[in-house]
Design a protein around this nucleic acid. Structure first.
Lengths: 343, 343
DNA sequence: ATGAAAGCGCTAACAG
DNA sequence: CTGTTAGCGCTTTCAT
């Protein structure tokens, strides 16, 4: 049923080597032989077998991408952009999700190792999964498999990041300029520490005392149900009678959950509380109120990640230096903030 | 650098055949030999090469999934669920996106063919891409590669669907029961014709004349920027001075875009217009107002798709009958609807 | 219970 | 320009 190179060779009355030549376009082949072979390929619907090629080339033309979850617009979009870019370059992307509430035995990395991916892209890895996967991660490094990460890792790999510290500082200063003094923060381990540091720095630089009761940053647990988490954190803030007028959330989903909770408590945004998010997912502009947030140049980041990874893959000799590439981010002012009511 | 079965054999002082036996656990191997080999595997960090296995087994343990876009919560969630289920069964999922505004030359299917996936999952395929890919789709069928589709296709493949007709009928009747008579519809080719038919049937069954000026269903173009599309359609409805109090949208993203537009026009939802969506994505419950919608049992659908596909793959002899499996859907009543103001 | 050897489909020397 | 041939790493008879 499935045709092989032999079938094509027989059909075209040539040797398999010649068929291989026209498929790969490497050596020269006489024009008419070439056409004869192309016709045979067409006629038989022949498609070369990747597995066989892989055995010889030692190249799978496959890249792995580990994300915590896919049902999160940020990762989904990144995966989509990367997938398309890679496809055009002849590579296939395998996306695996590392966050799995049900069981810790998650073979997301080992499967990529078996498949001998040519390169690895790392989003964020859930904490528990990370621990068990450190061994595998190390094997990637040991085997010299090019790797690019979208989050700070303790490993020596190229890292693509938004300038989270500077931009969250900018976001919080936006709130400060509006007149807010009591600004709360909701963060989580998975969104990184820099957004919290940016928040703290903004307060300090503006002579506002950092009040730890305004800060919720689950530094131990990874959170991936961000909206629910944002909702719950606001519930806590309210039930604790915390006094705040501004709120900075370490991503847009948390911010959306937070606004939802606020409104459920009858607190209007932005009239009574101002909220700033982070990432600028599609839903940020669509939500009501439209969310003021920080825009990650996700398209550029995806392009750079792909370019950097392919450079390492295709020039394995060049002793590659692992850079940390930081992208500037932009504050997008929309409708979720206003000056605090003078009380 | 990379270890092969030979390295393990040498390390353990056995032949490669014996190593193969313990890896696959098929033939019996003496206990102590087995342990010796397992130690060697552990020591060398040996991971079997998929490509080589594939050549012999004729099984890639890989499934392809074609979705229009990934940055759409519905497809992202489906992909995530499927990916996890497959991983547990030892399969790897390759997700490719078919919708690409930039170029029509999209090798989403041919790449899956080259990689000789054991099975194919089809979401929806963009119209133009579909045309050019029909050839490839036919090749999958011809080669007897098990295929499951999530949308009605003219091909003879197993299909997993929500009962869109019955449930959109239910959704529109909800609006009718609330007292709405002038109910608009916004649909698109990509969300399928059944949702429109359900809408029409609901009106007819309730003696409401179908007014074509209330219906926007781009039957020719595929739309994937759903929110933008919903926004624009409402703009059109408003600028045409169309008289309506209820609105049924063929998915939640369209509904969200529509509500956003309505509110931008100063029209309150649900006070002045009622809106119903379809799918029940996470954002539906989070949006403001929380969206009344129809819930697809996406988890069950994913599970069934995987089970059906693997059944075909693992029992290739059993002459498989291609069923159309239809799932019941549930109306989720939230805050985006109310009775129309008596005018 | 284990080893030797054939061969999966393909590419890359090496010959001619 | 084109054919012959040796593997790539693995599984699977077939011997032992």
């Amino acid at each position: 049923m499935i045709k092989t190179i032999k079938d094509v060779a027989r059909e075209a009355n040539v040797s398999i080597a010649t068929v291989s030549r026209v498929i790969n376009g490497k050596d020269r082949v006489k024009k008419e032989t070439k056409e004869k072979i192309q016709q045979a390929i067409e006629k038989l619907n022949y498609v070369p077998d990747q597995a066989a090629r892989t055995m010889i080339n030692k190249k799978t033309k496959t890249i792995g991408f580990v994300v915590p979850v896919l049902s999160n617009e940020y990762w989904a979009k990144l995966a989509e952009l990367i997938q398309r870019k890679l496809l055009r370059k002849g590579y296939t992307l395998i996306v695996t999700t590392s966050y799995d509430e049900r069981e810790s035995e998650n073979p997301c990395l080992s499967t990529l190792l078996e498949r001998k991916v040519d390169g690895l892209l790392i989003g964020t890895m859930a904490n528990d999964v990370q621990a068990e996967n450190t061994k595998y991660l190390q094997m990637f490094i040991d085997q010299g498999i090019p790797t690019v990460s979208f989050s700070s890792l303790s490993l020596n790999v190229t890292t693509i990041l938004g300038d989270a510290l500077a931009s969250s500082l900018k976001a919080v200063e936006h709130l400060i300029q509006l007149g807010h003094k009591r600004i709360a923060f909701i963060g989580s381990l998975s969104t990184g520490i820099d957004r919290e540091l940016g928040y703290r720095n903004a307060l300090m630089l503006n002579q506002i005392t950092v009040d730890e009761s305004l800060i919720i940053s689950s530094r131990n647990d990874h959170v991936y149900h961000f909206t629910k988490y944002g909702y719950q954190c606001v519930q806590k803030l309210i039930s604790d009678n915390t006094d705040f007028t501004g709120l900075f959330c370490s991503n847009d989903l948390i911010a959306i959950g937070a606004i939802k909770a606020l409104e459920d408590f009858g607190i209007s945004v932005p009239a009574e509380k101002s909220v700033v998010g982070f990432d600028d997912i599609d839903m940020a502009g669509l939500y009501r109120p439209a969310l003021t947030t920080v825009k990650q140049p996700i398209e550029d980041m995806a392009a750079t990640a792909v370019a950097t990874l392919l450079e390492q893959i295709e020039h394995p000799n060049g002793s590659y230096v692992h850079k940390k590439i930081s992208f500037p981010m932009e504050l997008v002012v929309r409708q979720s903030c206003s000056s605090p009511k003078s009380s």
